[in-house]
């Protein structure tokens, strides 16, 4: 079967896709939390910077951001390798969406919880990371699950800046062979499989965190 001939290259591509997804997700989490907390800050400057970040990265297209970093940054003498451009651009993009998810989840924590932290004289910072964020996390997980799927799908864009991910391999094999139907079907199924893994992982995480909260609440 010809499919077996394709498989090694495709698996190589899938591994690149998985790496970019993981690295970008980490960056998105960091950016998301940072921007969300900045947007909830008392300081106007911090709020302003975070708002500009969120609006710019949500408002311009992911592919435009990717191309900008790929084609324009070298113009300023900044030379990063395409792989890093790939995960950084996607991480920044998803991070902007994630910031809104995190902000929403934090704001959804009942007001009484804030008031209770003031009553026990916690600092704002203590209140945030000891009381508010732990309660907000279970609410964040389902939307972050969706964002992770969006990220996985968006990683296919890195094939357009010469990175040999799964989509890149599909086009490469398609140009070399005439097995178009088999190649693209297989690639779609491999993406589906990765998406299912992410969904399953998020379910587990959701189960684990909400159980933890329930126990803490008793």
């Amino acid at each position: 079967m010809d499919l077996l001939r394709f498989l090694p290259l495709m698996l190589e591509g899938a591994w690149v896709t998985a790496q970019i997804t993981a690295l970008a997700l980490l960056l998105a989490l960091v950016m998301g939390f940072t921007a969300a907390l900045m947007r909830l800050s008392r300081y106007r400057l911090l709020r302003g910077v975070a708002t500009v970040y969120v609006e710019v990265f949500r408002g311009t297209s992911a592919l435009v951001q990717l191309f900008w970093m790929f084609y324009v940054l070298p113009h300023f003498g900044v030379n990063i390798d395409p792989f890093m451009v790939g995960w950084v651009a996607l991480g920044l993009n998803i991070g902007a969406y994630g910031a809104e998810v995190i902000r929403g989840a934090i704001q959804a924590v009942p007001k009484g919880q804030y008031e209770a932290t003031i009553a026990v004289n916690m600092t704002r910072w203590q209140a945030m990371y000891r009381v508010i964020i732990p309660q907000a996390i279970p609410n964040m997980i389902p939307p972050w699950g969706n964002l992770s799927i969006e990220l996985l799908k968006a990683t296919s864009l890195v094939s357009l800046i010469t990175i040999a991910d799964l989509t890149f391999r599909a086009r490469q094999l398609n140009d070399r062979t005439f097995e178009t139907v088999e190649i693209f079907t297989l690639v779609l199924l491999m993406y589906l499989a990765m998406a299912l893994v992410i969904t399953a992982g998020m379910r587990l995480l959701e189960h684990y965190t909400s159980r933890g909260l329930g126990r803490g609440g008793i």
């Binding site: 799908k153 599909a170 693209f184």
Partner: peptide, 16 residues
């Protein structure tokens, strides 16, 4: 369709 990349779907329609 929701779990797979739009880019690959466009390729699918265009090449397949």
């Amino acid at each position: 369709v929701r779990s797979t990349p739009l880019l690959v779907q466009i390729y699918f329609l265009y090449f397949v």
